[in-house]
């Protein structure tokens, strides 16, 4: 039968399809060194494994997409919050350097007092700049921007006081320095009220610091969740390919060889999740940008929701790939090494 066609004459066989090369390149004819050969086949195996892992994911698109979505959402959430936080810190940082003290004078102070105070304040060393807004200017501005022009016409007299905007010098721009300045200014008779922007700026700073920590804690937790999700998905993949793993180990596959496809699967999950996260973030930013701009303009702020920079996008994808790889690695470490060929004959006597 077929069996005795074997051993004695395999060489008489015409070369198989796709192998008809002039002068068979066996042995000496090759110019590549054994090391190059080995490296080449190692790399080509990596390529093949990477491609094969990706194709496996494509073959079950719904399941893969679900995993990608889970990863994408889990990553987009903390990254989005970090972006928001970054924007907020941008606001407070921008204002911090121009912390200003606003002096409101008494209604009856009059132009002379205003001039006197302006000169007096401008000569102080701890104040770098003094800007005057007279009550007439203030009214005109208010009339223009508030939309209450008609209502203002009913008023007999201007309800707004003269105002001085002071920019303190850098060396007193701290809590004690500002408090001392404010205390001193409040003693002046003509001054009705002193207002410092710093108060709420400090609060904003503290709040953003606190939020920052919260977001990082959240990012850590969600990162761990991503690792676990990928780990579990890879565990299932390992179970599905148990036979293949056994055979690979049996014919002399090293641990690295057996792990490789699963690590690549983890990397593909990570990359897909990162891309989904990026798309989600961009969509959300685009959707939110209109209202945010409007809100910022209402507060006369330069506040701007900053999107992901090129480096940020790269970092997001890298982190995502690393998380996917880490999840796969944990699953592989935990479950693959436990599959040993001595279980192979469980089914037979």
């Amino acid at each position: 039968m077929a069996a005795n066609r074997g051993v004695s004459r395999p060489s008489q066989k015409p070369p198989a399809k796709g192998k008809e090369r002039p002068a068979p390149g066996r042995g000496a004819a090759r110019s590549r060194t054994p090391l190059q050969e080995l490296l080449g086949s190692y790399l080509s195996h990596h390529r093949k494994t990477a491609k094969d892992s990706a194709q496996r994911l494509w073959r079950s698109p719904v399941a893969s997409l679900m995993t990608w979505m889970v990863m994408g959402i889990a990553l987009a959430l903390p990254v989005g919050m970090l972006l928001l936080l970054g924007s907020l810190q941008g606001v407070s940082a921008g204002w911090d350097s121009t912390a200003r003290v606003t002096l409101y004078l008494e209604q009856n102070a009059g132009g002379d007092t205003l001039d006197r105070m302006r000169i007096q304040l401008a000569s102080r060393k701890d104040i770098t700049d003094v800007t005057v807004i007279t009550r007439e200017e203030a009214l005109a501005e208010f009339r223009a921007s508030s939309g209450l022009a008609d209502a203002l016409d009913y008023l007999d007299e201007n309800p707004l006081p003269d105002t001085l905007l002071l920019t303190p010098s850098a060396d007193i721009r701290n809590k004690q320095g500002m408090e001392a300045l404010v205390d001193e200014l409040e003693q002046v008779d003509a001054v009705a009220r002193v207002q410092v922007d710093l108060g709420w700026l400090q609060r904003l700073n503290t709040i953003t610091d606190l939020l920052g920590r919260g977001v990082w804690a959240l990012a850590l937790l969600l990162g761990a969740a991503v690792v676990l999700v990928i780990g579990n998905t890879i565990r299932l993949a390992i179970e599905n390919r148990r036979d293949e793993i056994l055979v690979a180990k049996l014919v002399g596959g090293t641990d690295a060889f057996v792990r490789r496809p699963f690590l690549y699967t983890g990397i593909w999950y990570g990359l897909g999740g990162g891309i989904i996260a990026f798309v989600l973030l961009e969509l959300t930013l685009w959707w939110m940008s209109g209202p945010v701009e409007h809100l910022a303009s209402l507060y006369r702020s330069q506040f701007e929701l900053s999107g992901l920079t090129f480096e940020g996008t790269f970092a997001l994808l890298l982190a995502s790939v690393l998380l996917g790889w880490l999840g796969a690695w944990l699953a592989v470490k935990r479950h693959l090494d436990a599959i040993e060929p001595n279980q192979i004959e469980a089914g037979h006597a």
């Binding site: 198989a16 192998k19 050969e37 086949s41 690979a248 002399g252 596959g253 060889f257």
Partner: peptide, 16 residues
């Protein structure tokens, strides 16, 4: 082909 892939035999030799 599995034992050959495991040992890193160059792709063009595997078929043969």
């Amino acid at each position: 082909a599995m034992p050959l892939e495991v040992t890193g035999v160059p792709h063009r030799d595997i078929g043969r």
